[in-house]
């Protein structure tokens, strides 16, 4: 069982493991910053999955989805960073 299909399956399994690890960090925390970092990681894996889907279906439109996910990722990161900064404790 070799060939492009099984190679893509291996790539998918690797990304799935990365997804599980990042999700675990998001559930465990322990701080807000950890969870936001994990969210960043999750969206990076989501971009990877979009690229893999484009490969397996042969449709270039999934690359546009990757762009959309990356865009949302940036806006979410900026918003959460501002949120963290505003919630700082007094000295």
């Amino acid at each position: 069982m070799t060939g492009p299909d099984s190679f893509q399956a291996i790539l998918g399994i690797m990304l799935a493991i990365a997804l599980i690890l990042a999700g675990w960090r998001m559930v465990r925390g322990p701080s807000f910053a950890d969870r936001f970092v994990a969210l960043d990681m999750l969206t990076a894996v989501a971009v990877g999955f979009a690229a893999l889907t484009a490969l397996s279906t042969g449709r270039g439109a999934f690359l546009d989805i990757a762009l959309g996910v990356a865009l949302i990722n940036f806006i979410a990161t900026a918003a959460f960073a501002v949120f963290l900064e505003r919630k700082r404790k007094g000295p």
Binding site: A33, V37, D40, F74, A78, F80, A81, R88
Partner: peptide, 25 residues
Amino acid sequence: LPILFLLVTLPLGAQLLARGSYLSG
């Protein structure tokens, strides 16, 4: 497009997030 966009925005996001988490103590 996603490659270009990631390369432009990622350092900005990283810097914002690092500064925010640093300031949150």
